[in-house]
Design a protein around this nucleic acid. Structure first.
Lengths: 160, 160
DNA sequence: CGTCCCGCTTACGTCAACGTCAACAGAGAA
DNA sequence: TTCTCTGTTGACGTTGACGTAAGCGGGACG
């Protein structure tokens, strides 16, 4: 029987996910310990499904936006409990809305910070161009970097 | 001689700044310990200037966007060293540009997270409206909250 | 056969960013 | 004077998110 790679039936080892997302085995086991992941087992070894991988993606992004593992777990739990605990969910709804507000504020902060950094960069550039024009590095590279980032946005959704 | 309040000459006690920005004395002293603030002294007591206050604002926003105190200090140092250390500044310039890229990515992450939270909220709402319509709380409040936030944006700049 | 390498568990270590507590001082109010 | 408030300096505790090290087992390779 052929192994169906690249199909939803595909599975991953801990190391495959680690190298793909630049995490460490310790981190994945830690997430599991905290209830964010529950991979299957082959004997002792962990076996991650596509769904586990999708959850991991959400975990990592959650971390990048400053959510705690606890908060991330609450979000993830909404996806696998098809229903039940309606009372708890009413609470979740409130927390989520609050979190949205926090994130919107955070986005404004980020925009502000980006502007300040741009201003600081300009100051530095003019300062350097006057006193040490030699040190001015690859200045135009930056725009290229920005433009290069307008491409790959692998949108992942949770399993149906 | 009259105290010129509300003027750049005004000074602040540690508690005034703390209550204004919902920080703690411990935190401000900690920032000072790490070199992010250097308030004047009246005997033993700290005396914060308008400039110190502006720095504090930057510190707090830096924290909200996920910068470490170390990174924030580097940014602040660019403001009070009018010049000098051109070699170091060339390094700072590079780091700042990298940080801008990181922040732009972070903003994308936040947008994605907001969308997911919105989706989760909708799921929860329909779920609740079907099984427990009684628990559906002030649903429309949320939009009001959002609209309420389109106002006060106290833009602070560093002292000349 | 030994020896890597990957994986597992258990347990202790670490780092940032403060919180908490002790012990003290000066300024005003009762 | 005695409280109470606000301030100070250490020094130690805490929390979250892992890192690191010890010790063991199982395949694969030379």
């Amino acid at each position: 029987m052929v192994m169906e790679l690249r199909r939803p039936e595909r599975t991953f080892t801990i190391r495959q996910l680690c190298t793909e997302f630049k995490a460490t085995p310790r981190a994945l086991r830690f997430y599991e310990d905290k209830g964010l992941l529950t991979p299957a087992r082959d004997g002792m070894n962990r076996v991650y499904s596509y769904k586990d991988r999708a959850r991991l993606i959400l975990i990592l992004r959650g971390k990048r936006v400053g959510l705690s593992l606890q908060e991330i777990r609450e979000i993830l739990e909404l996806y696998d409990e098809g229903d039940e605990a309606a009372h708890q969910n009413a609470h979740s709804l409130k927390k989520f809305r609050e979190k949205i507000v926090v994130l919107e504020r955070q986005r404004e902060d980020i925009d502000g910070a980006i502007q300040e950094l741009h201003a600081a960069c300009e100051r530095l550039e003019t300062h350097l161009s006057q006193k040490r024009p030699d040190l001015l590095p690859k200045a135009a590279d930056y725009d290229q970097v920005l433009r290069a980032r307008l491409d790959g946005h692998a949108e992942m959704a949770m399993g149906k």
